[in-house]
Amino acid sequence: MDRLDEMAIFVAVLQYGSLAEAARKLHRSPPAITRAIASLEHRFGARLVERTTRSLAPTEAGARLAEKARLLLSQYQNAVEDTAETQLSGLLRITAPVQFGRKHVAPLVMEFLAQHPDMQIEMILNDRNLDLIDEGLDLAVRIGHQEDSGKVARKVAEVTRVLVASPTYLAQHGEPKHPSELAVHQTVTGTLRTQICEWRFGPHEDDLRVRLSPRLLSNDVESQLLAVRSGQGIARLLSYQVKDDVQAGRMVRLLADFEPLPLPVQLVAQQVQQMPRKVRIFWDFAYQRLSALPQLHALDASSEQ
């Protein structure tokens, strides 16, 4: 077996946490993976991987080798790509939240495909954060703080959770001046994940909690927007979702002084050093396009005029 191939298998075993999972991802047989690790350990004269009942972990020697192996593989990949044809080709699989994907990711994907006619892109729009490895994804666009420290995240912008209502609704029911007043207002919310429906306020969402009895619950953002525009109640949505309506006067932003801190909009990938060329170029392209969008910045006073 090629020694560079052994290094790639070793890195994959550590990345996926098991011999069987590495075999599945690399389309190799489990015995082939086992032989590669054994051969590598024999050559280095040291155990590189500790096998437990549930997972694998590198030994101290294995961790040192893994760091150098990742750098070596990255340099090899870059060398191959630098001497290959400049035309991008192949499949790129990306994921994004549903409405954000439709509104902002799909247009930049169309532009990217127009620039690279040999590329193929598969977009998986889902409001759940899909696992990049399990789903075979190259890149994700996510809203919110990155919880998985094993991934690489690049902030492109930020959005705010804002309360909005239509002028018609406010004319009939009055404008709340404090979050506590929302308990007696008609509200529009997403579908419940728990039995308790509440909105939290303050920079860290710990200043005040208000229990709600929503007039409408929907897992679809467009339905919530339609309900607010038609005067059905007050909703809490992301600033990019309502910015056009606020600027056009179809909605009014409420209780801005009580809003939580903004949420980052981020590009997320497995790692940067070993990122394939097609992923790296799309990563940079998406960053440039998304960071330039005025909708992807927190609403300010000028947005409400």
Rank of each mutant, 00 (worst) to 15 (best):
Q15F: 07
Y16G: 00
Y16N: 05
Y16F: 13
G17Y: 05
G17F: 02
S18D: 10
S18M: 01
L19C: 02
E21N: 12
E21Y: 10
R24D: 04
R24Q: 11
R24F: 07
K25L: 05
K25I: 05
L26C: 03
L26S: 05
H27F: 02
H27G: 00
H27S: 09
H27A: 11
H27I: 00
H27V: 00
S29C: 05
S29Y: 07
S29M: 08
P30D: 05
P31A: 07
A32G: 03
I33N: 02
I33T: 10
T34P: 03
T34G: 08
A36K: 02
A36N: 02
I37K: 03
I37M: 06
I37W: 00
A38V: 08
S39M: 13
S39G: 15
L40A: 09
E41H: 03
E41P: 07
E41W: 00
E41Q: 10
E41F: 03
H42Y: 13
R43K: 11
R43T: 10
R43Q: 14
F44L: 15
G45A: 01
A46Q: 11
R47S: 14
R47N: 11
L48H: 05
L48C: 13
L48E: 02
V49G: 03
V49H: 08
V49R: 08
V49Y: 01
V49I: 15
V49C: 07
V49K: 02
V49S: 07
E50W: 10
E50L: 08
E50M: 13
R51V: 03
R51P: 06
R51F: 12
T52R: 12
T52S: 10
T53I: 09
T53W: 09
T53N: 15
S55Y: 13
S55Q: 14
S55P: 09
